[in-house]
Amino acid sequence: MKNILWIDGQGGYLLCDSEEVILGQAAPECLADLAIRGDISRRAASIRRVGEEHVLTPLQETYLDGRPLDRPALLPERAKLTLGKRVELAYVRPSKLSCSARIDILSNNRWQPLYTSAVLLSDSCVLGPFEDCHIVCPGWSSRLVLFRKTGEWFCRPPQGETVQVGDMMAGAPFPLKLGQKISSDEFSMILE
């Protein structure tokens, strides 16, 4: 899966569940999974999921927390990546229970297409108002969990609540489908 989850009033989040993603420059014939409008190589670095960790492999000039990187390195829970000279990214694994990680751009660059953050998915992704959520949505009152089971992605509504999925109401986990609007009193979102 490599799709953008558009959450009204919050932002757009690229959900990416492949084992390895390439970070690179947004170019007409784009080689990167996570494309950045910035002065970096088309293939600047890769992040690979190994067990419960992420390994950052520099393909071009890359810095991890300010130190130049010349070989693959394990990413700590929070790290600052610098690609090229100026593109700065924040990598964070907000929850101890999941190795899904969020990447935000710190410098004045943008993702291509324009979304808010990229989320590297392992087996789950939590949306909610708390700091330990992968996608932090201020103003929500509870958590919504996306999880992978037998290779497919499902959405579990908040405990004891039902959400509208397309034309149906759902109170139990339901499969995540592209272009289907998921909404409740509190939120509305679509996976594109």
């Binding site: 009204d8 009033g9 201020p138 103003g139 929500w140 272009g179 909404s183 509305s188 679509i190 594109e192």
Partner: peptide
């Protein structure tokens, strides 16, 4: 903010 996020139009 979150409590009133209803929009007439959505993605697409």
């Amino acid at each position: 903010f979150g409590a009133s996020m209803k929009f007439q139009y959505g993605n697409g």
